[in-house]
């Protein structure tokens, strides 16, 4: 390798490091400085503390039928009121939230890792491999979220474990598509061609140069998919396919509450509000990441 190309390689690496550091830093900085991002983080911290600390925070057992009466409206004793079996709805909501968050987090993390790897490789290598991988992804995408979940529940039987597998399953194609699109958009840009011309190996180009630039949209997508995962978990419980009563879940509470809309509005509204707050914060967060990491939007 001649001195000229060596110099150029050093120069490229320096640019790479500079963009990566400033991109990461400015993204985090942007999220915190953005009022939306701050609200999202505070809200999520509150909810996560509530979910993790549920056994300590909740004053009542979520399953025990020990309240003073059925359908008590919210009070200092029972913050969210009580249900048709004299159970405390605040405790049931907290424990439902806890179950929901745990399933969503684990399964999205697994799905993202697999999906992004498939998408990057397909986009970079191209040719028959890309076509094959993308048709496979299309076939997976042909089972949209809940449909895939229904198929998997049909095979494995209803339950939380099946829901987790289903979520990881539908996370994969979504990320594979996005990662491939990012790869196609980036791979013919000058900086990639330049490092290719300099003889950089594919792995280096993918993970050192392209992945850094493709990172923000993927992060946004991840926050969004967390919201989808939470939603699907709740939806399946709502349909009566994910629960093992009497253990509470957000969707299960909403399902039962539907029958008592005339007697107890808080039965639907209180767990519904916590559920909506969770989705709201996740969406705000993905917005904030998106804004913080897109130079085009930051410029204005």
């Amino acid at each position: 390798m001649s001195a000229v190309t060596l110099d150029a390689e050093v120069q490229l690496a320096w640019w790479g490091r500079k963009t990566r550091e400033s991109l990461l830093f400015s993204t985090i900085n942007g999220i915190i400085r953005n009022p939306q991002g701050m609200v999202a983080i505070l809200g999520l911290v509150l909810l996560v503390v509530g979910a993790v600390g549920a056994p300590v925070i909740a004053q009542h057992d979520p399953i025990a039928q020990d309240a003073a009466g059925r359908f008590l409206s919210p009070s200092t004793e029972n913050w969210f009121g009580t249900d048709e079996l004299r159970r405390d709805l605040f405790s049931r909501t907290l424990f439902g939230l806890r179950a929901s968050l745990a399933v969503s987090l684990i399964s999205v993390a697994v799905g993202t890792t697999i999906g992004v790897t498939i998408g990057f490789l397909a986009g970079f290598i191209g040719g028959i491999l890309e076509a094959a991988a993308m048709r496979l992804v299309d076939a997976l995408l042909a089972f949209p979220g809940l449909i895939a979940a229904l198929a998997i529940l049909n095979i494995l039987g209803p339950g939380v474990r099946s829901i987790g597998i289903a979520i990881a399953f539908f996370t994969i194609p979504a990320f594979a598509r996005l990662a491939r699109a990012q790869m196609l958009a980036e791979k013919n840009k000058d900086y990639v061609l330049a490092s290719q011309a300099l003889g950089a190996r594919p792995v280096r180009i993918i993970f050192r140069h392209i992945a850094i630039n493709a990172f923000p949209p993927l992060l946004t997508q991840m926050a969004l998919l967390m919201a989808v995962a939470v939603l699907i978990t709740a939806a399946l419980s709502f349909l009566g396919l994910g629960d093992n009563p009497p253990a509470p879940s957000l969707g299960g509470l909403l399902n039962v509450s539907r029958q008592y809309l005339r007697e107890a509005w808080w039965y639907a509204v209180c767990p519904g509000a916590v559920f909506a707050l969770l989705l709201f914060c996740l969406n705000l967060l993905s917005d904030a990441i998106n804004e913080a990491s897109s130079p085009y939007q930051r410029r204005r």
Binding site: L231, R258, F280, N283, L284
Partner: peptide, 26 residues
Amino acid sequence: LSGFTLVAIGIPGFLLGIIMLWVFSV
């Protein structure tokens, strides 16, 4: 737009459905 998307995405269809059912039907 921001307000609308936050509310609309934050409140999933079935929750919105239950609330509308309560307000407009019940």
